[in-house]
Write a protein that binds this DNA or RNA. Structure first.
Lengths: 206, 206
DNA sequence: TTGCTCCTCACGTCACGTGAGGTGGC
DNA sequence: TTGCTCCTCACGTCACGTGAGGTGGC
């Protein structure tokens, strides 16, 4: 037995066959081979031949990768020489939750930005949208350091100029949008934003 | 005027100074320079000198980066030659929400995995934790393709072997954990999991 | 002989980190 | 003269994608 299959399958699948069967690209399989993560046998012509054991290992690799492990972590785990898998799972969980928290902050900031946008139909008098965009971001973003007095004055001047260029209708629309945006935030979030702004003011102002 | 400041500040800040002032690393500033994103003047010795305009631009870069824009996107935006910023914000929002959805699926999977863990105090008879880990993952993971009959038989055999190696107490504990895990899922999620498993079965089985 | 698959370099991606080796101003 | 900061290469990161140029089996 072992030759009853015609000899071809007995030597295992080629990269292309395995790639088609699993959805993992040929290049990825080359990559895993080079890393020593998944080393198939070679036929006389030097081509990779994947047997059942390698196929199984590939499925494991794909599974572990889908759980967010790096390739460097996967090798030791599969060989049983890595850390306690349960710790690994919990570490992954912590990593994931940190990323989730960061993404949720980003999402909230983008929503704020979108909501604070000047009204759409305000015409060409609204000025170049790019400048408004930048200013909006500078106003929305929490800067890491306290503003200098000059920076503060400059921002004020620019804001005043921008405001002066708006029609009364636009001003009203902006105020409405701001109020609407504020209504979406919890009291705690509102307080946090105001505190953030306060802390950005140079000493002796506000 | 312009020389009243002593000449030094008049030529702007050095990279090191700017780095210390903003928290952006010297290497990053070099990087932005090379990309053409933030090109300071040079003094006679060839050193970078950042004036107020460059400092301001840096703040804008940092702000846009914090919103998830790539450096390649930031340049055009700041120069006003990019796409409509509002579209950009909304695209970012969509990207972010997709990433959030993916991370939430991952989190849920990791929680399932952690909850399905064999009891801790079950002693050395529980077998090498790594093997259990792998099996657990193979059972938990949604594979992309239908299992072959042989794969299915192999999985069954392995599961039976693993089960046979467990003490009655361990078996009971595992069943309890599974029930507990199931109770955390909504009826829809449970149905989806069962459907997923059904679809993995080879034709003619189950 | 023509396709098809396979092979091995080797550069590119993204936003820098991290030396390596050398120079100029206080 | 000693530090300190600055400079420009240039490789490394992470998991491959994407050609480039060549070979072997049906």
């Amino acid at each position: 037995m072992g030759e009853a299959d015609g000899g071809r399958a007995g030597r295992g699948m080629t990269v292309g066959e395995l790639a088609r069967a699993t959805g993992v690209t040929v290049r990825a399989l080359h990559h895993y081979d080079r890393l020593g993560l998944l080393r198939p046998a070679r036929d006389r012509a030097g081509r990779r031949r994947y047997g059942p054991a390698e196929v199984r290992r590939l499925h494991q690799i794909v599974a572990l990768r889908s759980f967010g492990l790096t390739l460097a972590e996967i090798g030791p785990v599969l060989d049983g020489t890595g850390a306690d898998p349960r710790d690994l799972v919990r570490r992954q969980l912590r990593r994931t939750e940190e990323q989730l928290a960061a993404l949720e902050r980003l999402r909230r900031a983008l929503l704020e930005l979108d909501a604070a946008w000047p009204p759409a139909g305000s015409g060409p008098a609204a000025g170049p949208p790019v400048r408004q965009f930048i200013e909006l971001i500078e106003r929305t973003t929490a800067m890491t350091e306290k503003l200098t007095v000059e920076q503060f004055e400059q921002m004020k001047r620019q804001r005043d100029e921008a405001t002066a260029a708006l029609s009364p209708e636009q001003l009203a629309a902006m105020q409405r949008e701001r109020a609407e945006q504020a209504s979406k935030l919890s009291p705690e979030e509102l307080a946090a934003m105001q505190e953030r702004r306060r802390q950005l003011l140079p000493d002796g102002i506000g």
